[in-house]
Design a protein around this nucleic acid. Structure first.
Lengths: 141, 141
DNA sequence: TAAAGAAATTAGCCAAGGCTAATTTTTATG
DNA sequence: CATAAAAATTAGCCTTGGCTAATTTCTTTA
């Protein structure tokens, strides 16, 4: 039996994504690290961490850092996946790096896995078919 | 000299989009029409309409309805465009109608015009090249 | 044209997520 | 090992954008 799913907010997804990335890159994620990385205040992070802990997405040990629960990690992984694929997609289409970032950050919380799978397939096709890619790119106004 | 741009919120964009659609379809958009159409309370709409009016996106006449200013109409048109193209895109990829709707509603506020143009071009290609479309669709897990 | 009904507004509330300033707790260092 | 520095928390505030209930204003109709 799979845990409910609970549709988490964009903010929650952003936090979980960043926490996982911090753990992957530096081995730990403390309140201060998250705050710096997201560009928000430590106080705001403390609040959200309380919520994430209460809702079972993370376990927090003061001054030690956070770890993600299975559920939290599943969400983080899903968001990171959507992020990666959307980024690849827009880059393939020749969108400028700064726009890719803005667009992806906005869209990554609103993509069903069906749509994600379709875009992934499209990326494969665009990657293996340069002629097609050229054609698409040249058709942009 | 073009007016600043002002990056309006998703909520503002949703309202302007819906107001324009109501005007297009029934000729007018009153508070009650917007409330019914968005599935929220009249009181909430009254509040937002005050804001939209104060910020110069609409003109409101009680019991008569709203009209969009040039600026409001420009935003509405842009959102409706993004909506239309994203919808076409996901439909082409074979996503189910309900998922198309959910995904588009979420994503339509976060798409730059570059990305929009690219997706538009991609739609043209997918439409005129059924073989490609088949290939992409069959590559989805 | 007066009264019923529809439309709109007001008042007061709530939750999510931000913020700063002040304080507490832990770690690290001279 | 005392204390400075770093990390975390608390308290209190703000904005956005919802809500309900009560009230007001306009329109419609008997």
């Amino acid at each position: 039996m799979i845990k409910s799913g609970k549709r988490s907010s964009s903010a929650v997804e952003d936090y979980l994504e960043r926490i996982q990335e911090l753990i992957d890159s530096k081995g730990y994620a403390r309140v201060v690290d998250i705050a710096l990385s997201l560009g928000i205040s430590q106080a705001s992070v403390t609040n959200m961490v309380k919520r994430l802990d209460a809702e079972g997405f993370v376990k927090h040990e003061r001054y030690r850092g956070l770890i993600l629960t299975d559920e939290g990690r599943a969400i983080a992984r899903a968001v990171i996946d959507r992020h990666r694929i959307l980024t690849e997609f827009l880059r393939l289409l020749g969108i400028s790096e700064s726009e890719v970032e803005r667009d992806v950050e906005g869209m990554e919380h609103h993509l069903s896995s069906s749509s994600l799978g379709a875009i992934e397939s499209l990326c494969r096709e665009l990657t293996s078919n340069r002629e097609l890619l050229q054609k698409v790119r040249s058709g942009m106004k």
